[in-house]
Lab assay of single mutants.
Amino acid sequence: NITNLCPFDEVFNATRFASVYAWNRKRISNCVADYSVLYNLAPFFTFKCYGVSPTKLNDLCFTNVYADSFVIRGDEVRQIAPGQTGNIADYNYKLPDDFTGCVIAWNSNKLDSKVSGNYNYLYRLFRKSNLKPFERDISTEIYQAGNKPCNGVAGFNCYFPLRSYSFRPTYGVGHQPYRVVVLSFELLHAPATVCGPKKST
């Protein structure tokens, strides 16, 4: 009989979030998941669920729940959905087409922007091929755009693959930082360890 609440607040209220290319994953298990708490945590810009209804979450049980978190800019949030393409979905964080879970995003301009520009958040701009779903690539190998090998040196047709967002508070919403948490629900042929409040007794 599990009584402890799932530590969603640790994920959502973390002081620092990860850069999207090096997104963070927390496995959540053996706890009571009260998803209604999430609705009250922040004024969400996005709370979209796929393959599951957000209002039914509190009635369900899962084997595992994974919470992935990272920062992107406002106009990239739409890429965090099944079947999307674009720089983020292709080279940084890719959801599977049959994704079961929820994408939660909110504006973090007050936390993640600086007047002089916050350069701490990076994204991958160049990659030889698209990522597979939930693949994480943290390599910093020089990207070869031409025929000549780069031998690890940046220059003509040889690019450092990561680029930094420079978040400034005066930017338009599309270029402001957004914190994203992706909850993916895993149903294996194994005992369910993460249940809503109704199912945990």
Rank of each mutant, 00 (worst) to 15 (best):
A192Y: 15
F160P: 10
V32M: 11
I104V: 12
D112F: 03
N109W: 04
Q84T: 12
D97C: 07
F45P: 15
C31L: 06
K114Q: 11
V180T: 07
N147F: 06
F44K: 15
V194Q: 12
L60A: 11
V77A: 05
C31G: 05
A154W: 06
S19P: 07
N107V: 03
T140S: 12
F8Q: 04
L111A: 12
N107F: 01
K148Y: 12
F126T: 04
P96R: 05
A67I: 10
R27I: 14
Q144F: 03
D112I: 05
Y143E: 01
F47Q: 10
Y178W: 11
F160V: 14
N157E: 01
K26I: 12
P54S: 14
R136A: 05
Y66I: 14
G174M: 06
N40Q: 12
K110Q: 10
F99V: 04
S29A: 12
D75Y: 07
A18R: 07
E10T: 10
N130T: 15
Y171C: 01
H189R: 13
F167G: 01
L187W: 11
E10I: 08
T100I: 14
R16C: 11
N40S: 14
V153L: 14
K114N: 10
H189D: 15
A33C: 09
L5G: 10
L122Y: 10
V173N: 10
R78E: 09
L187R: 14
A190R: 13
P169Q: 05
D112A: 03
P161H: 04
S129Y: 10
D34S: 09
C195L: 07
K56F: 08
P177K: 01
G152A: 10
H189A: 15
G174D: 07
I80W: 02
K132T: 11
V11N: 05
V115L: 12
R16A: 15
R168Q: 04
E76A: 04
R124K: 03
K48I: 08
A154Q: 14
K128D: 11
G51L: 05
L5N: 13
A154M: 10
V194H: 12
L162F: 06
P43I: 08
D34T: 08
V32E: 09
Y119F: 07
N151H: 12
Q84P: 03
A145C: 05
F167I: 00
N107G: 05
I28K: 03
A18L: 05
I2A: 14
P197H: 15
Q144N: 15
Y50M: 04
R16T: 15
R73D: 01
A33W: 15
K199E: 12
N118H: 05
I104A: 09
G174N: 07
P149G: 11
K110M: 08
I138A: 11
L122V: 11
N40I: 07
T46E: 12
L95V: 12
D97H: 12
K48E: 09
P177F: 02
D9S: 13
V153I: 13
L187G: 14
V11G: 05
V37C: 10
N13D: 07
V181D: 00
L187E: 11
N24M: 09
P161A: 06
I72T: 05
N118R: 04
C49G: 02
D98C: 07
G101C: 01
K26A: 09
G155K: 08
L38S: 05
P96G: 08
D98W: 09
V115R: 12
I28N: 04
A190M: 13
K26W: 07
A42T: 10
P169G: 04
V173E: 12
K110D: 10
F99I: 04
N64G: 10
Y171R: 00
A18Q: 10
P54F: 15
R27E: 11
L38M: 10
F44P: 15
A190P: 13
E135S: 07
V180W: 01
Y66P: 01
V103W: 03
P43S: 11
T15W: 06
Y21W: 08
T201N: 15
D137T: 03
S116G: 15
T170P: 02
V32T: 13
D68Q: 03
A192W: 12
Y91S: 06
K48P: 00
G174H: 05
P149M: 09
T63W: 09
G51W: 05
C61V: 10
L188W: 11
S69C: 05
P149V: 08
K110S: 11
C49I: 03
C61I: 08
Y66L: 11
F70I: 02
N87Q: 11
L188N: 15
Y165A: 00
Y143A: 02
P177T: 01
A18M: 08
R124D: 00
Q144T: 07
D34R: 08
T100K: 13
C61Q: 08
P197M: 15
I88D: 00
L162A: 03
I2L: 14
G83A: 09
G152R: 10
A190S: 14
I142E: 02
L122A: 13
L187N: 14
I28V: 09
D59G: 11
G196S: 12
R163C: 15
F12T: 06
T85R: 15
L183Q: 01
S19W: 03
S164R: 10
A22N: 13
V115I: 14
A22E: 12
V181R: 02
F62G: 07
I80F: 02
N64T: 12
F17C: 03
R179W: 00
Y39W: 15
N118T: 06
N13H: 11
K94T: 00
C158D: 00
N4R: 14
Q176G: 01
Y143H: 07
P7W: 08
V71W: 01
V173Q: 14
P169H: 05
A154D: 09
I72N: 01
S113R: 02
G152S: 10
A145N: 06
D75H: 10
K148D: 12
P177G: 01
I2Q: 14
N151F: 11
G117R: 03
D90I: 05
Y91R: 09
F44G: 15
K198R: 15
V52E: 06
S116I: 07
N120D: 13
A81F: 04
L183E: 00
I142A: 04
L5W: 12
S29D: 09
C31Q: 06
A145K: 05
R124F: 00
L57C: 06
F62W: 15
L131F: 04
I138D: 12
K132D: 10
N24S: 15
N157G: 03
Y165E: 00
T63P: 09
Q144W: 04
R163V: 15
Q144A: 10
W23V: 02
V20F: 02
P7Y: 08
N157V: 02
A105R: 05
Y159T: 00
L111S: 08
Y121H: 07
N109F: 03
K132M: 12
L95R: 03
V11C: 05
F134V: 05
A67V: 11
I72Q: 01
G86F: 01
S129M: 10
W23K: 01
G146Y: 02
G172A: 00
Y91L: 08
I138S: 10
Q144G: 07
K26R: 15
F156E: 05
A33K: 07
Y123C: 08
Q79W: 03
T3G: 11
I138E: 13
V71M: 04
K94D: 01
S19E: 02
Y171N: 02
V71T: 06
F8T: 05
R73L: 00
E135K: 05
D90L: 09
A190V: 12
N118V: 04
K198C: 11
S19C: 06
K110R: 12
D59S: 13
V182H: 01
G174P: 06
H175L: 01
N120Y: 12
K148C: 07
S36C: 06
V37R: 14
V77S: 04
N1D: 11
R25M: 02
I142C: 04
Y143I: 03
A14H: 08
F99M: 05
A33P: 12
V194M: 11
G117Y: 03
C195E: 08
D68I: 04
Y121C: 05
